[in-house]
Design a protein around this nucleic acid. Sequence first.
DNA 1: ATGAATTAGTTGCCAAAAGCAAGTATTATC
DNA 2: GATAATACTTGCTTTTGGCAACTAATTCAT
Lengths: 312, 312
Amino acid sequence: MSRIDTVRGFNRFYTRRIGALQAHYLGSPFPLPQARVLYELGHRGQGGGGSCTASELGADLDLDLGYLSRLLQGLKRQNLVTGERAQHDARHVRLSLTPKGKRAFAVLDEASRRATGEMLAPLPARRREALVKALQKAHAILDGAKGEIALRTHRPGDMGWVVERHGVLYQEEYGWGALFEALVADIVAKFLRDFDPKRERCWIAERDGERIGSAFVVKEGRDIAKLRLLLIEPGARGEGLGKRLVQQCIDFARRKGYRKLVLWTHANLTAARAIYTRLGFRLVKSEAHRQFGVPVVGEFWELDLKREPRGT
Amino acid sequence: MSRIDTVRGFNRFYTRRIGALQAHYLGSPFPLPQARVLYELGHRGQGGGGSCTASELGADLDLDLGYLSRLLQGLKRQNLVTGERAQHDARHVRLSLTPKGKRAFAVLDEASRRATGEMLAPLPARRREALVKALQKAHAILDGAKGEIALRTHRPGDMGWVVERHGVLYQEEYGWGALFEALVADIVAKFLRDFDPKRERCWIAERDGERIGSAFVVKEGRDIAKLRLLLIEPGARGEGLGKRLVQQCIDFARRKGYRKLVLWTHANLTAARAIYTRLGFRLVKSEAHRQFGVPVVGEFWELDLKREPRGT
DNA sequence: ATGAATTAGTTGCCAAAAGCAAGTATTATC
DNA sequence: GATAATACTTGCTTTTGGCAACTAATTCAT
């Protein structure tokens, strides 16, 4: 089944679900269109913005403005909604719920919560979590509004993710084989086993609950640290995350008193190289090899942490 | 934000999206309710079942039967739909699309495809994939209908997944720490590095495009194989997948001429132990240790592959 | 087997929902 | 200062949908 048909299948299915969920409107003392308006108005009120105009409401609920006007009249007559002409433009009427309207909305809202809760209730906890996460993700993707990127230290499972994503992405992008994935697995195994919290650190970048990047600082010698496993998910590239992660590593290494930060990268990883250059690393050695199944040029870079405590 | 509110947020958002997607009904020469009926009827036709009755249709589209009856009359008058009384029960009328109806449906269907395609088109390929996957997953969870479980050999990224899930699940379920995750990473690194396709194998169990289990057979000695990293996702337990994976390993080891299949497990992993026992493994040695941060009892099990080529 | 209940669908009637076009008041534009 | 545009409102209309009473076929209970 094609992607489009998968989505259409979901739409058909979910339309019914949503229909079932909205049955709670029927339980309310308001006719459905009034309830819809009340509900929307209430949600906007919560959302911070507070009031809104009739046109906005109409556009969002896809209602004819004439019809909406009458619906609002009904709600105003029942003392659920008030409209005040805006000072700056007397054509606009800023709508808001009266206290009575807010109470009525709260009832609707609670019914909606309950209906949604009942949809989730029969699912075992794990599937419920998975469902919520899936919907959240779909929402985030369609909305396009990306959340904040947060950096955190590692947790159980993170090392596996680092291995997986290195394995997949380097395979896809450069054709590096299983031996590269093996190398990464070795590195993270060693990291976990010998982990010295005072001198070493792993950062995982997350957005909307999803991992999108990693970077490690590990002890290479008494006063030498090594930057490893810098990875940015394709969907998160071009937003300065790589630089942010590397800077994080530099700051950490400097703070911990290391003299030098070294790293091993490859000539074809141009985006990473650009970051290293910009942040002051110098290329000290190149070396062709074919450890990963394809011929590549390994590069050794270094940053002197004692010079220029602040950037160029 | 609570789980319920996340879902409600999605619902509010997606209701509008679906509304926008269904604007294509407006482009059709049919009034919206007729178009809905036609569309539903067409989809059922495709789905294999073919015809359906008016009551079923009404239940699915949430339409009043009286109203639906009139809608169908209209469609019949336009020669788009035919109804034939069922032989076994003359009360039922089995509805189906006429050739003309099918053509009309095809137009609607195509418009719907296009609308959905337009929703997906602006997304970059990766996010589009992620979206489709998220919706597919949500659908699968809500539907409850689980797909077939398929076993396959490993691909890039799989080893990382094995590490991640071992790390997370053993942490959650038994409190095993980072050292266990490190051990798993070591094992998979070694597996990838020394992989001998003729004598070793990894199985990944998948359902609906998602990994739900793993099992490995690796060479332990000249004629001794070792079963490792048997893992079943919690959501897939109790369906015999563990047994299926272990059996797969046994068959493979036997086929490859190994004399003995050994494994290392722990006393607290009762589900796994039950499988080993049932499939003929014998416990040969126990040994308490605390390699994983908590005190556990390691167990060495063996299966003689030469005896009883077929089960007990 | 036969009358009562049930199921599937139809019809008549009516109210709610929604669309369209013309109208008003206010503001923006040239 | 006329013209156009915006933000609604009102009047009129069609469409949509809900309910109850009805027919026809089938099932169930005794």
